[in-house]
Nucleic acid binder design. Structure first.
Length: 415
RNA sequence: GGGGAGAUUCCCGAGUGGACAAAGGGAACAGACUGUAAAUCUGUGGCGUAACGCUUCGGAGGUUCGAAUCCUCCUCUCCCCA
């Protein structure tokens, strides 16, 4: 090994910081090597992240990857966001087999703009470049596409978990979907990516990028994988469509409430992936929670405050904590809650039926559900449990009244 | 191109003429217990002021007193062979 290729303690320390929370790196010593390359050439590394131009929704799960990118930027590197306007023609085959609606150019542009807007909450805009992959994919003619496709085998593509599962379960797989990893791999070739970031579920795509770069005589990128942040339900990947997410622009109170509802076993991952609390400290906190030395609830409060401090500020975290205790320990009603202004058609002869009230406020999907909620004792009106599903309320009694369903859903009424 | 299997409620999956708004499981929701955690237990299960009411079982027609179940055509998927 040449002298200027030696991994100094400084480089190792930096690499270790960049590796925090990652679930995999391909190849294992890739980060160190790329850092050496940077040292040698002085040229910032190209850190790639590919995005689907679907409606942006930045939540903690997505932020895991973005925060990692930010770390690279802070070390002087260049982030290249690739908006997959062309790959959107295919639609990432991950997840369901339902065909995705085609997006128009305007929609894609609009979404891209929104993305950049939201990304800048976490990323350093000056070190973020946004490219559309139609720029190069759009240039490929059929012959070039075929040549490209010849570099990968069906067996390789079928290794990918999504495909393998769908194949095993007799689910349809469109031929064009097989091209997705290839198209994404070509992005890496086109921008000469040094590192490609992605969730664990992008493993195949990212490795395909490495393969293709090698095939085409380019420097191979390093794949840096982040674990998939499990959503609030504790089972599935955090995503907006499932609804098990915490949006990075949510109010402190909302974030706090949601974070307090995660299971204890998820705390460690959330600490590591969503906060900057040092790893040793996280380990200590978790250990204390597990041994019963500290009430796990208090560790979770800390977690919630840490996260709120990132997206709002520390003070907001404290406030949310106090508010949460006021509501849950003291049983008081929250300061903020959705409001519903009654409309003309909602009442009859100055009175409104509870079940109807639940339906119009959106707290129950239908009368049947509303009836059930009341019968089961899940509904209270101004703090008093509603026992009778036939109960009627006079309009005058409704102004400013608080309707509560279940443990945590409130609506304030307006007449 | 030939042969076979299939499409059921949020998901998986039973159901082959009436007892089916449709088994069972999962998810979800509510209650109890808690720390708005986990686990456990109980309850709910389309809509509907609830009614022997209305609309559901890929789509459109048909047979029948009666269809998720039978017939015809259509759409989509999977498997095997070529």
């Amino acid at each position: 090994m040449e002298t200027n290729n030696t991994i100094t303690p400084e480089i190792q320390a930096l690499a270790n910081r960049l590796k925090r929370g990652t679930s995999g790196i391909a190849p294992a010593n890739g980060i160190e090597e790329k850092l050496l390359k940077f040292q040698r050439t002085g040229k910032p590394l190209n850190i790639k992240l590919g995005l689907d131009p679907t409606a942006p929704d930045i939540h903690l799960g997505f932020a895991v990857v973005l925060r990692k990118l930010r770390q690279f930027q802070d070390c002087g590197h260049q982030v290249i966001i690739i908006i997959g306007d062309y790959t959107a023609l295919i639609g990432d085959p991950s997840g369901r087999s339902a065909t995705r609606p085609m997006l128009t150019a305007e929609e894609i542009n609009q979404n891209a703009k929104t993305y950049v807007d939201q990304l800048s909450v976490i990323l350093d805009r000056d070190k973020t470049q946004v490219r559309f992959n139609g720029e190069w994919l759009g240039e490929l003619d059929f012959a070039a596409t075929v040549r490209l496709a010849s570099r990968m085998t069906v067996a390789q593509v079928l290794q990918r978990e999504d495909f393998a599962n769908r194949y095993a379960n007799h689910q349809p797989i469109g031929l064009h979907e097989l091209l997705y990893p290839l198209a994404q791999a070509y992005d890496s070739v086109a921008i000469e990516a040094d590192v490609e970031m992605g969730g664990q579920d992008q493993t195949f795509n990212i490795l395909a990028g490495r393969e293709l770069q090698k095939e085409m005589g380019k420097d191979q990128q390093v794949g840096l994988f982040m674990p998939i942040l499990v959503g609030l339900d504790g089972v599935k990947k955090m995503s907006k469509s499932i609804g098990n997410y915490v949006g990075i622009r949510e109010s402190p109170d909302s974030m706090f409430g949601k974070l307090m509802s995660i299971s204890d076993t998820m705390m460690r991952d959330y600490f590591i992936l969503c906060t900057d609390v040092p790893e040793e400290e996280v380990a200590a906190l978790i250990q204390q929670a597990e041994s019963g030395e500290v009430n796990p609830k208090d560790v979770k409060r800390r977690l919630a405050r840490e996260i709120i401090a990132i997206y709002h500020n520390a003070e907001a975290g404290e406030r949310a904590d106090r508010e949460w205790h006021r509501i849950h320990a003291a049983g008081e009603v929250p300061a903020d809650m959705p409001e519903y202004a009654l409309k003309d058609g909602d009442s009859t002869e100055g009175e409104i039926w509870v079940c109807r009230l639940l339906v119009v406020t959106g707290m129950a999907k239908g009368t049947g559900e509303a009836r059930r909620l009341v019968t089961q004792g899940g509904v209270s009106f101004n703090g008093e449990k509603v026992a009778d599903p036939q109960a009627q309320y006079a309009l005058e009694a409704l102004e400013n009244a608080v309707l509560k369903v279940g443990a945590k859903r409130y609506t304030r009424l307006r007449v």
